[in-house]
Design a protein around this nucleic acid. Sequence first.
DNA 1: AAATCTATACTGCATTTTGCAGTAGGGTCA
DNA 2: TGACCCTACTGCAAAATGCAGTATAGATTT
Lengths: 210, 210
Amino acid sequence: MPPRSTPSSYAVLALLDLKPWTGYELTHQAQRSLRYAWPKSERLLYSEPKKLVELGFATVHHETIGNRSRNLYTITEEGRHALHEWTSTRTEPPRFEIEALLRLLFADHGSREDALRVLDELEDDIEGHHQSIVELMGTYLDGGHPFPQRTHLSVLFATFQIEMFKNIERWITFARVEIEEWPSTQDLGMTPRTEALTRLLAQDHSPLNP
Amino acid sequence: MPPRSTPSSYAVLALLDLKPWTGYELTHQAQRSLRYAWPKSERLLYSEPKKLVELGFATVHHETIGNRSRNLYTITEEGRHALHEWTSTRTEPPRFEIEALLRLLFADHGSREDALRVLDELEDDIEGHHQSIVELMGTYLDGGHPFPQRTHLSVLFATFQIEMFKNIERWITFARVEIEEWPSTQDLGMTPRTEALTRLLAQDHSPLNP
DNA sequence: AAATCTATACTGCATTTTGCAGTAGGGTCA
DNA sequence: TGACCCTACTGCAAAATGCAGTATAGATTT
C-alpha cells in the first residue's frame, strides 16, 4: 500500500518544483520559509521526500562525495501533475496554538508578575519572527529574490505575517496595561473596565482601534 | 512509570479546578472555550483526565445512572499545587498552522480563481470563529459569565481572538484586491506594485494601515 | 406505537507527527 | 590537535489525530 499524501507532502513537493534539493536542504528551507504558516519538525521533513519517491512524485539520486553521502530529490512529471490537482481540494481550517494565551486565561493560578512574564515571553517569540521577516524583505530589495518570478507570491505571504505580528504586539501592549491595573489576578470578575470591554466586543468593535 | 504532563494536561487540569466535570463535558468544554488558543482533538481530551488521575492530580468517580455510566473527575490538592507550579515554567512559542497561506504561497500551480477560492475558504472559517466569539460576549452581558470571578481573564482572552480575526479578515480583503489585479498567478515577479509593497515591509510599515 | 434523530458517553486501533538521542564525515580556527 | 560547528541523516519511543465502533436515553416524527 503506498503512503498517503498530506498537506506537508505538497509543501515539500512545491519546494521540489522550484529546484532539486537534498534532504538536508529541504528540511532547512522548509523550516525557514514555511515556519509561520506550516510549522513542521525536521524529522518529518526528512521523511516526506521519501514518501514522494514512493508515490512516484519525485526521484532520488544518492550521491557520494568522498566518504559522505546525500540524497538529491527531483520532482517528476507525475509530481507536477499532483501539485496541480492539489489546488482543487478543500483547504483545512487554520489552527492557532498559543500556549501563552492558555496560560493567561488561567493566570489566576499565579501572580501578576507571572502573567506579565508570559506576555514578555510571547513578545520575545513574536519579535524574533517579526524581525526576521522584515530583514528578509530587505534582502529581496538588495540581493533579490532567490526565485524572482515568484516575488509577488512571497510578498503577499509576508504581508500576512507582518500584519499578524504587528497586531499581536499591539495586543501585548494593551494586555500589559490591563494586567498592570489589576490589583491581583484573582476574583476581579466584571470590573467597570471589563464591562466596557465586553460591551465593545459584543458589538464587534475593536478595543485597540478606538 | 507515570505519564508525563503536557500543556494539554494543564489545560484540562485548569478546567477541573473550576468544578468537577465528566469526561464528556470536559471534551466539549475544552473544545468550546480553548479551540482558538489550544485546539485539541476530542480523543486526546478524553485521555487527559485519565492521565491526571494516574499522576494523582485528579480523582475519578464512576457513576451509573440507570444502565449508563460516566466518569466524574475532581481535582486534588496535589493537582492544585501542580497548577501553581506550572506558572513558573517557560511558555512554548506560538504555532500558526494556516494551510490557506501555504496554498497561496504556491498559488502559481493553479488559476487565479483557485487562489481566490482559497481566500474565500479561509474567510468562511475565520468568520465562523469571529461570530461565535462576538456572540459569546453578548451572552456575558445578558446571562452573565458561567464563572463570574474569572470574567476579567476571559474578556482579555477574547480581545486577542477578536483582534486577530478582524486583522485576518482585513488581510483577506487586501489580498483579494491584489490577486484580482494579477493577469495570471505565474511569473509576475517584481511588479511595480510588489516592489512598493516590499519597500513598505522592509521598513516595517503596514500596507493595510497606511 | 414504532421509527428516527439527537445528545450523552465513551474506547480501540491505525496512522501521523514530534522529540530526542545517536552516528558520522568535513571544514575552520586557535 | 582539539574543539566546535555545519552537513547529513536514522531509529525509536511517545504524543496526538482521525475514524470507526458501541451503546443508552430522551425527544420528535410518522
